[in-house]
Design a protein around this nucleic acid. Structure first.
Ligand SMILES: [Mn+2]
Ligand SMILES: [Mn+2]
Ligand SMILES: [Mn+2]
Ligand SMILES: [Mn+2]
Lengths: 220, 220
DNA sequence: TAATATTTTTAGACTAGTCTAAAAATATTT
DNA sequence: AAATATTTTTAGACTAGTCTAAAAATATTA
């Protein structure tokens, strides 16, 4: 059995590997694990011995197949628990993450599979992120940042880049929630702010900061 | 914030204090914590400094009011999670305990109160044990062991002394589940085994071992 | 009450995970 | 290619929780 710490390292390394391509370096891990590089080196050695990742001194690490599967199981658990909190206990989407960080460490395959069924085998969590299946497969849909769309284009809000509570609360206050359709009306050359029209509402202004952190599925 | 280990010690001490009266001794704690007396002494000192219990060398320990409240919160969480697994995810009563041992350590008051509401504010867990309320109050009903009832007396199965999977499975196989009404038909002088009649069924024999571990609410 | 048995505590050591400071390797500039 | 900067690793130390073995206190028995 793996410790919470080991599990968190594996998840962190998976996420880094996701975005920044191949091998993950010590400092990057230290940053998201909120620890020091020296501690990371120690842990890396341990995880390497346990065959969860491959490691060459000074060359960074890469998850093994075992490590990758473990990370996906963690993510599956995390997102299913978030969905439970949101769908069944009526938490808002900015409240679920911290508790899911704890719940993702509960060890029981039966529990997570029953939870999956109880929730009706959801495909996405409350933030729009895809939930890996029992088989470890994660289905990827191409999403675009609001800032990437051109004038007159349409899209449905389907995800967020920034997952912070503060940002999620801000979106909610402005009706920018999952599933809402929006149209790009105009862009400012000055500060890259956008004017958008939300489905069944009046046009509003959003900052470029917001536009870069909201993901759309293109429509029409 | 308290560690899982600290929380488990407090819960163990509470349970010992419950049954065996006043102050709890080191060896008893060591036994249910599956550890050595020396380790217990170390932990006791720590919990004493944190004011969760009062401790006089060689004299045993007693929970403080803070410690008692903490224990009751743990028990509340444990039993609510057991109820969730049983009621919502269709686990059987012998499968819920081990997972609840993990879930009881999740830190979030909002989570547990929402779960309580989601479950309809249950009063008892799948084993018949009372669930402490948000206020920390635990409602106690007087229960009797099957072995304590006399010939011709009636009762409804409302709890178990032994919580082991093996025992719970045995009860289930013999229709001895929570809520069933039974009548004592006869007792054997030889091995203290009992003949009982289960509500809407034919009389069966149960060993004294079983009779001492099933709790009844007297009826009629 | 003295001898013996049991329980509890202390002393010292071990592991997991962390840290700081310094050394070693690698990357970037000049 | 040498000098400098950055990154990574090592060395040694700390805390939480555990252990064994021995000492101290308490309980039991004669
Ligand atoms: Mn999350
Ligand atoms: Mn999420
Ligand atoms: Mn239980
Ligand atoms: Mn129970």
């Amino acid at each position: 059995m793996y410790s919470f710490t080991e599990e968190n390292y594996i998840k962190a390394i998976y996420k880094l590997q996701e975005k920044s391509g191949i091998s993950v370096n010590t400092n990057a891990i230290a940053e998201i694990m909120q620890t020091k590089a020296a501690s990371v080196t120690d842990m890396i050695k341990k995880l390497s011995e346990k065959k969860l990742l491959s490691y060459a001194k000074y060359k960074g690490v890469e998850l093994t197949e075992t490590g990758r599967k473990m990370a996906l199981e963690m993510i599956r658990k995390h997102r299913l628990w978030e969905t439970f909190l949101y769908d069944k206990l009526n938490f808002s989407w900015d409240e679920v993450h911290d508790i899911a960080e704890q719940l993702e460490h509960i060890k029981s395959t039966k529990l997570i599979d029953c939870l999956d069924e109880f929730l009706g085998f959801p495909e996405n969590d409350p933030h729009g992120d895809p939930i890996p299946g029992k088989n470890g497969l994660i289905q990827r849909i191409e999403l675009y940042k609001v800032s990437e769309l051109g004038i007159g284009e349409f899209g449905v809000i389907s995800g967020v880049v920034n997952h912070s509570s503060l940002f999620l609360q801000h979106l909610e206050k402005n009706q920018l929630v999952l599933g809402k359709g929006i149209e790009i009306v105009s862009k400012s050359d000055f500060d890259q702010s956008l004017r958008i029209k939300i489905e069944g509402g009046i046009p509003i202004m959003i900052s470029n900061e917001v536009a870069r952190n909201v993901l759309l599925k293109k429509s029409r």
